Amino acid sequence: MNLVINPFGILACVFVMLLSSCANRNKYTVGPDGSLVDKDGNHYNPHEPGTYDHFKGEKDYPKTRKVWKNESVLARTNSGNSSILVSLDIQRAFLMNGDEVAVDYPISSGKKSRPTPPGDYKILEKEVDKASNAYGKVYDAEGNRIYGEETPDAVPEGGKFVGAPMPYWMRLTWDGVGHHIGTIPKGRYAASHACIRGIREAIPTVYGKVKIGTPVTVE
C-alpha cells in the first residue's frame, strides 16, 4: 500500500495554522506591568472562565479578597491528606491536597515590627472560640476604653482586659503564632502581630479539613 501525500493539503493546513496564530497574537499584547492587554488597552485574561488559571489571570490577583475553591479537589481533601501553604510575598494562603490547590484565599501576616516567621510547622492546637491573652482592648474602672493600649500590662486598677477574638484558631508555635479568622485590610497588606489572619469566607472550611499535626509551610 502506497501512501500518497497531497502537498496542497499540507500547505492549506499550514496556512490555516498561521492565520490562527496571527489572530491570537493580535488579540492581546503585554502591557507595562507585564499583564496582557487587548487592542484597547484593557486587561485581557486568556484563560477559560471558571478555571483556576482564569482566577489567577484576573487583573486584581493576588490583591483580590475573593476566595477560589476547587470543589472537586475540596471534596476529596481531608485531615489525612491536607496541608497549608502560606505565601508572605503575595499575602495568600492555599489549602492543599498533595500538589493540588483546594482553596486559595487572602491572608494578612505579621507587620514589620512583628513579622510572621517563615518555616515549616505543624498545627499544634485547634480551638473554634479563641481569644488572645496578649492583645485586645483595655478598659478603665468606669468601663471606658483606653485607646492606644492593647496589652494586659496596660490595665489600670479596677479596669479590665478583653482579648482580641481569634475564631477558628490553629496554633503554629507555642509563643503565640497561629492561623485564624481576622481583619484583612482593604489594601491587602501585612498588619497582624505575627499571626496569619485569614478571611472569614475561607477559614472555617480550612479548619474543617485539617487536624493537629497537619503540616503548614510559611514562605
Rank of each mutant, 00 (worst) to 15 (best):
T29Y: 13
P215A: 11
W174F: 08
V30A: 04
R65K: 12
R200P: 01
K209M: 12
G208F: 04
T151I: 07
I203W: 05
E150P: 00
I90K: 10
D33Y: 01
A190N: 07
G182M: 01
H47D: 06
K137C: 02
R200Y: 07
S192A: 05
P156T: 06
K126I: 08
M1L: 09
C195I: 09
H193D: 04
P215V: 08
V37K: 09
T64N: 02
G187H: 01
K209S: 11
S192R: 05
A141T: 00
Y28A: 15
W169K: 03
T64C: 06
N2Q: 08
Y207T: 06
V86F: 05
D53P: 00
K160D: 00
V101K: 15
K66D: 14
D104L: 08
R200V: 03
S79M: 14
D99G: 06
V155F: 12
K112C: 07
E48H: 10
D153T: 07
D38W: 00
T183Q: 01
E201L: 10
G136W: 03
G148W: 02
R114H: 15
M96E: 11
A164E: 05
A23N: 10
K66G: 03
N144K: 11
I181N: 07
A164R: 00
P32A: 13
A190G: 03
G143F: 09
A194C: 11
A134M: 12
R145I: 12
I123R: 07
G187Y: 00
